[in-house]
Structure formats: structure tokens, C-alpha cells
Design a protein around this nucleic acid. Structure first.
Length: 440
RNA sequence: CGGAGUGUGGCUCAGCCUGGUAGAGCACCUCGUUCGGGACGAGGGGGUCGCAGGUUCAAAUCCUGCCACUCCGACCA
């Protein structure tokens, strides 16, 4: 992408409403625009990151055996009356009337709807286990949205719903998501720690929040330091292997880790002092087992091998991709701007023409740009008529992992400079060598 | 929902106390000189001062009401 043909509205000064780093940097880097409290447009650069995150989420959901579908944002109120949540959900739910005066709502979550889908097609244990997910916009009318994408009212959520004949099956479904989540966040460069959590309005009694430690996190959390060194399951993990998954989950729940609501000060104090981590965290995922809370009232029944119909055992599993955009920035930034981990970076390489208009640098940049495109590598070419300093500042701000600096000084020796945004290291090399660095 | 603030060109803000023809920096347009860490000069365009009422000869400024947004707290799959 040529910057001259892109839409990247960089802000040189920080908008006053932005308090935390991720919000500030997203606004400055032209990733998002606020439309109302807790409601944002994703501008092109922000959308690219969001899509990268969603792709990783999808790949790991699919790997674990979940199946994607797509439910609407608007739901009829009747469904929610069946589970008694229409009244229970309160003002957080955005209620709408259509032209026929029917009560509708903008979905804050989808347990009711997925249960309705399930019950209209599935009758037998032979069709189980089943895990259906979608990635869809949600709306929760928070009293106080804040911190940009971290706590928006409208936000993107991946929500998965599992269906099993009994608790044993449901536990394995829970374990699948547990392991998939560890992998998902790790692929974005984030270390997540599963913490015992309240299950809230979703209900149920088995629940973990996946927390990223960050100073600006909204939750107060406590955990054992060894979690920071646990090995994340690799891509070869067998999601159908009950014992294998159970062992992973047992390891990752063996040590103390809890959010403030579930915090047991006495147990925590029992840990050796140097193992105690008391910090703030960002909740990026939350998983629940809630049994028959919805299937019983909504009559989602399946016949077992004995021919008897019983309510199906369910769980639900959420990840907030839009919140993750903020969480990744919180984890990877410095004074100058964002430092994207490669898997979620909006572009992989940025070419900086340090002397726009000069024949030699222009030709070298064009050649590099074409070669990268031919290799299928996403490159952003800064070809605007700006001075080098301004280009450096822009590049550091938007945080593309690799910068190729093409200036007359090094080009005189037939070299370009390859700079790594993460640590600022630079290397002088031929354009061919720079190209060889990158493969699709 | 309790508390505290803020609304003035696209952005950051000054002006308000003490009423009198709306300002700065950045950004934008034109021309020129520049070009390895957010250049310089000259010229230029752009604002119903959040909205509605009121006071006054006169309101960005004073008064009343409303709206929006932000922060702290409570709340929050």
C-alpha cells in the first residue's frame, strides 16, 4: 500500500479525552474514531489489526473443533423472556421497538439464540458434542464506558457455545476452549493467565477469566509467579484427547490465580513472598460452564442412548477481539508509539523513502515495494513528500514491525537500512539481502 | 447512579473573573528554499464560541435550563 493512496489520518497531538496509552495511540495512529461514548469507527489501519486478531481467533477456534456461524445483532425479546433474562438484564440491554411495536433488543450476548437454534435441529446424543461460535458485534449499555476500546459499549466478541450430553462431555468442551484460549493469546504475543472468576449473569459455577497483566488493567488480580513461565500448548495438541487436555488444564489451574472477587487473601499469603504476583490485569477472555441453565427452561433436550430426553449441558466462551487491539498495545508500546507483534501488525514492513523526489531513492523504493508485493508481503510505502524526521515519527507511531530506510547516504554504498521497531536495532545491507529477510 | 470537570476553525489550547467587531501553535492551500529523527520564509483559506432561553445599547464572557463528552467511585460474560 502506498501511503499516498491510503487513508491514514495521523494525529500529531494527543486528543484530550484519551487517558491510557492504547487509547491515545489508537487515536494518534489513525486507527479508530470515537462516534459516541464507547462507540467507535475502525479506520483502515485499525480494521487491519482487528482482522488479524479475528483470523487468529478463528484459526484456533477451528483447530479446537468449534464451528463458525453468524447470528444477527438484533434479537426478538421473546427469546429472552423464555430464559427470564429479558427482565433480569436491566438497563445494560439496549431495547428497541420495531414498526410493529414488537420488542426487540441489540444482543449483549447470544445464549438464548444459540439455544433456540440448537433445539430446533438437534434431538440426539449422536449429534454431540457440538460447539458453535460466531464473531459478532455486541452492545452493552455500560454506565460508564472508558479507556477507548477496552470498555466500549459496542464491541466485537467471539462467543462460542458448547453442547454435550453430560457433565463429563461438557468438561472436555470446557477444556478444549481453555487450551484454545491459551494458544490464541500466545499467538498474539500475550501471556494470558486463567484465573478463577465469578460467573455473573451468565450463571454456572465453573468459570475462568483469561487475564493479561497490565498496569492499566481494570481488574485487580493475584497469582503465582510461575504462571509467567508455563509452556503454552503447541499446535500439535490433540483436542480430542480427553486425558491430554485435562492434564494441560490441571497444570494451568494448579497454582493460585484469582481476580479480586474470588481472591482468598489467606491462601495467597501462604505462597512464598517471591512467588506472589499482585497486579492489575485486562480480561481478554472468559469461559463458563453453566449446565442446563438455559437448556432446561428453553427445552433444549437431547435423547440419550437410553432413549430418555434430557436438557443438554452447555458452556459459553467469549473473547473480545476489539478489546484485544487495545490490550496488545498496552503490552507493546513505548514513548514513540506502538510496537506491533508481527502476527497482529497491520503491515509487516514499512518502506521509508528518506528523500522523496530523488531519482535514486525513488527507484530503489519502487523496486523494493514491487518485490515485496510479489512475495505476498504486506508493505506500507511511505511515499509522501515529507522530511525524514516526520517519516521516522510516523513509522514509529504506527509501529510496523520492520522499517526499511532508503536514503541517499546509505544508497550511495548500495545499501538500505533495516530497522526493527521492537528494539530499535538497525542493520545496513543490500536491498537484495533486505528482501531475503522476508518470506510469506 | 454519586462526585469532579470540560465544550471556542480539523487537533491542542488562550480569551470568560472585570461584557465592547474571535486569537495562537499545529494541520490545510499557493510559491520558494530545504531534505537521516516531527524544516524555514512569504502569502492565503477556514470558526452559528455545544444548544435553547434570559439580562443588557451590546454576550464566547453574566444568569437559567438542557445536551454531549471526560475523569474518580460504584457497577460490569
Amino acid at each position: 500500500m502506498r501511503l499516498s493512496r491510503y487513508f491514514l489520518p495521523i494525529l500529531r497531538e494527543t486528543p484530550k479525552e484519551a487517558e491510557i496509552a492504547s487509547h491515545r495511540l489508537m487515536l494518534r495512529a489513525g486507527m479508530i474514531r470515537q462516534e459516541a461514548a464507547g462507540i467507535y469507527s475502525f479506520l483502515p489501519l485499525g480494521l487491519r489489526v482487528l482482522q488479524k486478531i479475528c483470523r487468529i481467533v478463528r484459526e484456533e477456534q477451528d483447530r479446537s473443533g468449534a464451528i463458525e456461524l453468524l447470528m444477527p445483532t438484533i434479537q426478538p425479546a421473546e427469546l429472552w423472556r423464555e430464559s427470564s433474562r429479558y427482565e433480569a438484564y436491566g438497563k445494560e440491554m439496549l431495547r428497541i421497538e420495531d414498526r410493529h411495536d414488537r420488542d426487540m433488543l441489540y444482543g449483549p450476548t447470544n445464549e438464548e439464540m444459540i439455544t433456540a437454534i440448537f433445539r430446533s435441529y438437534v434431538r440426539s446424543y449422536k449429534d454431540l458434542p457440538l460447539n458453535l461460535y460466531h464473531i459478532q458485534w455486541k452492545f452493552r449499555d455500560e454506565v460508564r464506558p472508558r479507556f477507548g476500546l477496552m470498555r466500549g459499549r459496542e464491541f466485537l466478541m467471539k462467543d462460542a457455545y458448547s453442547f454435550d450430553v453430560d457433565f463429563a462431555g461438557a468438561k472436555h468442551a470446557y477444556n478444549r476452549m481453555f487450551v484454545a484460549y491459551l494458544r490464541t493469546f500466545a499467538r498474539m504475543g500475550l501471556r494470558s493467565i486463567p484465573m478463577v472468576a465469578e460467573s455473573g449473569p451468565i450463571g454456572g459455577n465453573l468459570s475462568h477469566e483469561f487475564i493479561i497483566l497490565a498496569e492499566t488493567g481494570e481488574s485487580e488480580v493475584f497469582c503465582h509467579r510461575d504462571y509467567l513461565n508455563f509452556e503454552v500448548p503447541g499446535p500439535k495438541v490433540d483436542f480430542d484427547n480427553v486425558a491430554e487436555l485435562q492434564a494441560i488444564v490441571e497444570q494451568w489451574t494448579s497454582l493460585y490465580a484469582a481476580t479480586s472477587e474470588k481472591h482468598d487473601a489467606a491462601a495467597f499469603a501462604g505462597l512464598p513472598a517471591e512467588k506472589r504476583v499482585s497486579a492489575r490485569g485486562i480480561e481478554v477472555g472468559h469461559i463458563f460452564y453453566f449446565g442446563t441453565k438455559y437448556s432446561a427452561p428453553m427445552k433444549a433436550l437431547v435423547a440419550g442412548p437410553d432413549g430418555v430426553e434430557r436438557p443438554v449441558h452447555m458452556g459459553s466462551y467469549g473473547i473480545g477481539p476489539s478489546r484485544l487491539v487495545g490490550a496488545v498495545i498496552e503490552a507493546f508500546h513505548d514513548e514513540a508509539g506502538i510496537k506491533w507483534p508481527e502476527p497482529v501488525a497491520p503491515f509487516r514492513v514499512m518502506i521509508l523513502n528518506l528523500k522523496q523526489g530523488a531519482a535514486e531513492t525513488g527507484a530503489a523504493c519502487e523496486k523494493l515495494y514491487a518485490a515485496l508485493a510479489a512475495k505476498g508481503i504486506e508493505a506500507l510505502y511511505h511515499d509522501l513528500d515529507e522530511r525524514p524526521g516526520a517519516k521516522f515519527a510516523t513509522a514509529d507511531l504506527i509501529g510496523i514491525p520492520w522499517q526499511i530506510l532508503v536514503g541517499p547516504r546509505s544508497l550511495a554504498e548500495g545499501k538500505v537500512e533495516v530497522k526493527r521497531r521492537a528494539d530499535g536495532t538497525r542493520e545496513l545491507m543490500s536491498p537484495a539481502a533486505a528482501l531475503a529477510r522476508f518470506s510469506a
